[in-house]
């Protein structure tokens, strides 16, 4: 039963990663980044590594998204 949840989460992780790569808008790609981090936190908890899950929750779901958003804010959009 726990295997089925793990496989569903891995498929969901791949779906999120494909959406982040192949979307047209850059802001949609940034919004999908905390979802990727949260799925990875749950996968680390299932694989019995809660310390790595804590570090992952701080880094990917928190700091990286904030840095990317502030960086995208400082650029200008080019309308062709």
């Amino acid at each position: 039963m726990i295997d089925i949840i793990l496989y569903i989460l891995i498929i969901f992780l791949a779906l999120t990663a494909f959406f982040m790569v192949f979307t047209k808008d850059m802001l949609s790609s940034i919004i999908a980044l905390p979802i990727f981090g949260s799925i990875l936190v749950v996968i680390f908890v299932i694989l019995q590594a809660p310390s790595a899950a804590l570090a992952e929750a701080v880094i990917t779901a928190g700091l990286t998204t904030g840095f990317f958003v502030i960086t995208i804010n400082k650029t200008e959009m080019q309308n062709d």
């Binding site: 802001l27 940034i30 919004i31 958003v69 650029t75």
Partner: peptide, 11 residues
């Protein structure tokens, strides 16, 4: 952070 800094760059 998203609601504060994504204000300029939306189409």
């Amino acid at each position: 952070i998203m609601a504060k800094y994504l204000k300029k760059s939306e189409k």
